[in-house]
Design a binder for these strands. Structure first.
Length: 870
RNA sequence: GCGGAAGUGGCGGAAUUGGCAGACGCGCUAGCCUCAGGAGCUAGUCCGGGCAACCGGGUGGGGGUUCGAGUCCCCCCUUCCGCACCA
C-alpha cells in the first residue's frame, strides 16, 4: 500500500518543501549522477570520421571561462545539446565538441588583483565550468576539448599569421587606433560599441600607434555577396553584417589645388562621392581634421599655429559625439582653393569636424543644395548654394531653398550634362572623369582592416622579429610556437608586459643571426575564436592546424548557436578566416556555419543576468533542487530558443512536476510492460476505442515532435506536445481502470489485458524516446528499467505511422457567413458531397439558414465547411 | 533619421499554406483524496449576457481583399533591437 513518507527534510534549506508520499519517487539527483558517470566512463559522445554515415556538426559558441556559468550562459548549451541528441538518435554521426576561449583580459586583471597567474585563474575556471556542463548532462565529446591559451592551440594562430603575412593579408601600419584607457589596449573597430569599449564601456580615444592588421577588406565584397547565400541565418544578423561592411558605389574625383601663390596648380585633393551627378553644385571642399593636407596648409600659411590649433580642437572632440552627429558642425577656411574639375571654378577648401578622416579619402565635396550636412554647413558659414538637380514635378525654388534636396531629379546648370536624369548623369559624368583622368569609379567599403595588436600579456604572441638589418622577419615555422613566457610581473601599466622580459624580447634574427627584437604585442583574442571550429575536427594535430580531410568530412558546421552580440565580431571574422583557409587550399567550403541560431537572453527581474547586478541564477542551485532534466526542460519549454525569456522559479517547478508526473506513471509500469505476452501491434484488431485513441495520440505526438524539432527548432511546442501525450496517458489509465486518481493500485502492477499493455508500451516508449533529447537522464533511466540494455540512441528516433495516427472520424466546424454555428462528425474519408450534406443538416446550423438561399458551400476537408447564404 | 523584428488572456506563449483564436505551462477557482495539503488526481479559467443550450464582442488602432484574416494589402500608433554626419 501507499507508504507515507514526509520528505520535507530533503528540501531543508532550499526554501522549498515537497513531499511525495505515494512512491515511487522521482529523485533526479541520483539518476543524473549515475548516467553522467556512465557517459563519461564509456566516452558515449566521442566520434570519429565515418564516411558510411551522414555527419552532423552541432556547435555552440565556445565559452570564455569567466568563473561560473549562469543559466543565461547555459541556455545556449542546452539548445545545442537537444539538437545534438536528436540528430544522434536520427542516425547521424554527430560532432558536438566544446572548448574554451581562454585568452583575454579578465584573466590578466584577476591576476593583477589577486596575485594569481592568469593561467591558474583560467584553468581553475575551466575546471569548474566543465563540471557545470557535465552536471547539466550536455553531451559533449570531451575528448576534443580545446583551450586557446595552450601552446598546442595558439601555435596555429601563429602559423596562420605567418601564412597571412606571406600573402600580404597581415601587415603593419602606423595609424590612428581605438584606445581603451581602462583595458589599456587597442580595440578593433568592431569592438567599439557606441563609442565605448565593448567589454568595459569606457569611452574610446584615438591613439596613433604602429599596429598589425589583418586585411579583411580584401574579402569585403565577397563577404557581402555571400551573405545572400546564408539562407539559414537570421535576417537580423545578415542585415547587421551588410551594414557593417557598408558597400557604396561612387567615384573618386581629383580637385586640382591652387598653390599658395594663387596661381600654380601643384597638387590635387581627392574626394569620394556617391553623387557625382551633383558635382556642378560643389561649392566648397571639406577636409577631415586628420587629413594630411591640413598640416601642410598650416605650414604654408602665414600663421601655422592658428590653423593647427583649430584642427587639433576638432580632433580632440569626443569621438562618440562627433561620430553620432551630437556635435554641432563647425569648420574653418584654410584660405586655400581648389578647382572644381567640371565647372573649372575655384572653390574654397575648408576643414570641418563632421568629415571622417578614416572613410573614403578623408575629403568631401560640399554640395549644399543636395546634401543635408553640406546645407547646414553652408548656411552657417554663408557659402554659396547652387541647385544642380531639379525636383521633377514640384520644382525647387533656387532663390529660396529651405532645405537640401537629396533625392534624384533632373540635372540643371550642369553644362553638357544638363537635362539628364540623376542616374544617367552619374554614369556619363563618371565616364567623362575617367576619360579625362580627373577621376574614377570606385567602390568604397565602410569595413576597415582588422587591427589585432594588443598591448597585453594574456594572448597569442605575434610571431614577428624586428632586425635592424633584415627588417621585419616572421618566425620560421620550425621555431613555432613562440611560447608565452611564464614569468611576468603584472603591473597593470599600459605598455606590453612582454616588452619587460629581456629573455623574451632579445632574439637572434632568423635570417642573419644578429641580435634582434621580438614583437611584444599579443593577438586580439578574436583571432583564437575565428577558426576554433576547424580545430575541433582534429584537435590534437601536432603538425598542422587541422587535417583538411577531417574538416572536409565534418565541415561546415551544420548548426551553430550563440548570442547575437557576435553578429559583427566573431561571426564576420570567422567568415573571413574560412576564406583564408579556403585560399590556402585547406577547406573546401566558403561559409563556416551553414545554419545560425541566435539564442535569446535569460532575464531576471527584467535585467540581463550579470554578476555585477547580483541577479544571476546558478544552474547548480537549480540542479540541486529540481535536477538538470527539469532545468533543461523548463528552459526549452518557456519560449522559442531565439526569444528572450524572463526567469521564473514557478516555471521551473512546473517542469519538475511534469517530470515527476512522467516518473509516477512510467516507473510502476516498467515490470508489466516488458517481457513476454505483449501482443504485437500490427495485427491488433481487437483494440478498444480508448486504446485506438491512445495509439493515435502516440503517433500524432511522434509526428508533431519530429516536425517541430528540426529544422524548425520549435522546442517549446515539441515539449507541449509531449505534455499532451502524458495528459492523455493519465486519462487512459483512468479509463482503462489501471489507475485511480492518477495512481496505480500497486507498485508491482500487473495489467491483464494484452492490448492495453501493448498500447501503453508503445506510448511510454515513444514518450521516453521523444523526450530523451530534453531530459536524457530520466529517459535513459526509465528506458533501462523497461528492460532495454542499449540506451535510447541505439533505439533510434520513433517512426511516425500515418495509418495509425489517422482518425476514423473527424469533427469539422460549420460556418455560416463566416461564423461558426455548429460542428459535425464525419468519416475521415468522407467525400466533399457527403460532408456538405452533413453540414447543411447540422441542427445548430439549420436555424441560421432559415429564409435564406444557400449561395455557395466551401468544403475544406478535415477542417471546416463554409456556407454562404443570404 | 535609416534598417530590422515584434504587438494575441492575469503571465510565458500556441495557431505549416488564409480555415474552429488562446494548444501547452504558470497563476487562480472548485471538487476529490487526505489527520493535513504547500503533494496528487479531476474539472473550470479571453470579455459581456444567460440556470442553460446559446447569443454578442474579441489577436495595438483604422481601412481593404476574401465565403472566411492573428495570418495577405494600405495608413497610423507603440515597444524592442541594430546602425547612425560613411558624403
Amino acid at each position: 500500500m501507499w507508504r507515507c513518507r514526509p520528505r520535507a527534510a530533503r528540501w531543508a534549506g532550499s526554501g522549498l518543501r515537497y513531499n511525495f508520499d505515494p512512491v515511487p519517487d522521482y529523485t533526479p539527483q541520483t539518476i543524473e549522477t549515475k548516467w553522467q558517470q556512465r557517459w563519461t566512463e564509456t566516452g558515449a559522445f566521442e566520434v570519429d570520421v565515418d564516411r558510411s554515415r551522414p555527419k552532423f556538426y552541432c556547435l555552440e559558441m565556445f565559452a570564455y571561462p569567466s568563473g561560473h556559468a549562469h543559466v543565461g550562459h547555459v541556455r545556449n548549451y542546452m539548445i545545442g545539446d537537444v539538437v545534438a541528441r536528436l540528430k544522434r538518435m536520427q542516425g547521424f554521426n554527430v560532432l558536438h565538441p566544446f572548448g574554451w576561449d581562454a585568452f583575454g583580459l579578465p584573466a590578466e586583471n584577476a591576476a593583477i588583483k589577486n596575485k594569481l597567474h592568469p593561467e591558474t585563474w583560467t584553468l581553475d575556471n575551466i575546471a569548474y565550468m566543465k563540471g557545470q556542463l557535465q552536471r547539466l548532462g550536455i553531451s559533449y565529446a570531451w575528448g576534443r576539448e580545446i583551450a586557446t591559451c595552450l601552446p598546442e592551440y595558439y601555435h596555429w594562430n601563429q602559423w596562420l599569421f605567418t601564412r597571412m603575412y606571406e600573402k600580404g593579408l597581415a601587415f603593419r601600419r602606423r595609424s590612428n587606433v581605438n584606445w581603451c584607457s581602462s583595458c589599456q589596449t587597442v580595440l578593433a573597430n568592431e569592438q567599439v560599441v557606441d563609442g565605448g569599449c565593448w567589454r568595459c564601456g569606457t569611452i574610446v580615444t584615438q591613439r596613433e600607434l604602429e599596429q598589425w592588421f589583418l586585411r579583411i577588406t580584401a574579402y569585403a565584397d565577397e563577404l557581402l555577396q555571400a551573405a545572400e547565400g546564408l539562407t539559414d541565418w537570421p535576417e537580423k544578423v545578415l542585415t547587421m553584417q551588410r551594414n557593417w561592411i557598408g558597400r557604396s558605389e561612387g567615384a573618386r574625383v581629383k580637385y586640382p589645388l591652387v598653390g599658395i601663390d594663387g596661381q600654380v596648380v601643384d597638387d590635387t585633393i581627392e574626394v569620394f562621392t556617391t553623387r557625382i551627378d551633383t558635382i556642378y553644385g560643389a561649392t566648397f571642399i571639406v577636409l577631415a581634421p586628420e587629413h594630411p593636407l591640413v598640416d601642410r596648409f598650416a605650414s604654408e600659411s602665414a600663421d601655422p599655429s592658428q590653423l593647427r590649433a583649430q584642427a587639433d580642437r576638432f580632433r580632440k572632440q569626443d569621438r562618440l559625439a562627433r561620430m553620432s552627429g551630437g556635435v554641432e558642425k563647425e569648420g574653418f577656411d584654410t584660405g586655400r582653393t581648389a578647382i572644381n574639375p567640371f565647372t573649372k571654378q575655384p572653390v574654397p577648401v575648408w576643414v570641418a569636424n563632421f568629415v571622417l578622416g578614416d572613410y573614403g579619402t578623408g575629403a568631401v565635396m560640399g554640395v549644399p543644395a543636395h546634401d543635408e550636412r553640406d546645407f547646414e554647413f553652408a548656411t552657417k558659414y554663408r557659402l554659396p548654394i547652387t541647385v544642380v538637380v531639379q525636383r521633377d514635378g514640384d520644382p525647387l525654388d533656387e532663390m529660396n531653398l529651405p532645405e537640401s534636396f537629396a533625392d534624384e531629379g533632373t540635372l540643371v546648370h550642369s553644362g553638357e550634362f544638363s537635362g539628364l536624369a540623376s542616374a544617367e548623369g552619374r554614369a556619363r559624368m563618371s565616364a567623362y572623369a575617367e576619360a579625362t583622368g580627373i577621376g574614377e569609379r570606385t567602390v568604397q567599403f565602410r569595413l576597415k582592416d582588422w587591427g589585432i595588436s594588443r598591448q597585453r600579456y594574456w594572448g597569442t604572441p605575434i610571431p614577428m622579429i624586428y632586425c635592424d638589418g633584415c627588417g621585419v622577419v616572421p618566425v620560421p615555422d620550425a621555431d613555432l610556437p613562440v611560447p608565452l613566457p611564464r614569468l611576468v610581473e603584472f603591473s597593470g601599466r599600459g605598455d606590453s608586459p612582454l616588452a619587460q622580459i629581456p629573455e623574451f624580447v632579445n632574439v637572434a634574427c632568423p635570417t642573419c643571426g644578429t641580435p634582434a627584437r621580438r614583437e611584444t604585442d599579443t593577438m586580439d583574442t578574436f583571432v583564437d575564436s575565428s577558426w576554433y571550429f576547424y580545430r575541433f575536427c582534429d584537435p590534437t594535430n601536432g603538425s598542422a592546424p587541422f587535417d583538411p580531410k577531417k574538416v572536409g568530412y565534418w565541415g561546415p558546421v551544420d548548426f551553430y548557436s550563440g548570442g547575437v552580440e557576435h553578429a559583427i565580431l566573431h561571426l564576420i571574422y570567422s567568415r573571413f578566416f574560412a576564406r583564408v583557409f579556403r585560399d590556402l587550399g585547406m577547406v573546401d567550403h566558403d561559409e563556416p556555419f551553414a545554419r545560425l541560431l541566435t539564442q535569446g537572453m535569460v532575464l531576471k527581474d527584467g535585467n540581463v543576468m550579470s554578476k555585477s547586478k547580483g541577479n544571476v541564477v546558478d544552474p547548480d542551485d537549480m540542479i540541486r533542487k529540481f535536477g538538470a532534466d527539469a532545468l533543461r526542460l523548463y528552459v526549452m519549454f518557456v519560449a522559442p530558443p531565439e526569444k528572450e525569456v524572463e526567469w521564473t522559479d514557478a516555471g521551473l517547478e512546473g517542469s519538475f512536476r511534469f517530470l515527476a508526473r512522467v516518473w509516477r506513471f512510467v516507473d510502476p509500469l516498467t515490470t508489466t510492460l516488458q517481457g513476454q505476452g505483449i501482443p504485437g501491434l500490427a495485427g491488433l484488431a481487437s483494440l478498444s476505442g480508448d486504446e485506438k485513441a491512445l495509439r493515435r495520440k502516440t503517433h500524432d505526438t511522434i509526428r508533431r515532435v519530429t516536425a517541430d524539432f528540426y529544422p524548425r527548432v520549435h522546442l517549446n511546442t515539441a515539449v507541449s506536445a509531449l505534455m499532451e501525450l502524458v495528459n492523455e496517458m493519465y486519462a487512459f489509465g483512468e479509463k482503462a481502470g489501471v489507475t485511480k486518481q492518477g495512481r496505480f493500485a500497486d507498485e508491482q502492477l500487473v495489467i491483464e489485458r494484452g492490448e492495453t499493455r501493448a498500447v501503453l508500451k508503445e506510448a511510454v516508449e515513444a514518450l521516453l524516446l521523444l523526450i530523451s533529447p530534453f531530459t536524457p537522464h530520466l529517459a535513459e533511466e526509465l528506458w533501462e528499467r523497461l528492460g532495454h540494455a542499449d540506451g535510447v540512441v541505439a533505439a533510434g528516433w520513433p517512426v511516425f505511422d500515418e495509418a495509425v495516427a489517422k482518425a476514423d472520424e473527424v469533427e469539422i466546424a460549420v460556418q455560416v457567413n463566416g461564423k461558426v454555428r455548429g460542428r459535425v462528425v464525419v468519416a475521415a474519408d468522407a467525400s466533399e458531397d457527403a460532408i456538405r450534406e452533413a453540414a447543411l443538416a447540422v441542427p445548430q446550423v439549420v436555424p441560421h439558414l432559415e429564409g435564406k438561399t444557400v449561395r455557395k458551400v466551401v468544403v475544406v476537408p478535415g477542417r471546416l465547411v463554409g456556407i454562404v447564404a443570404n
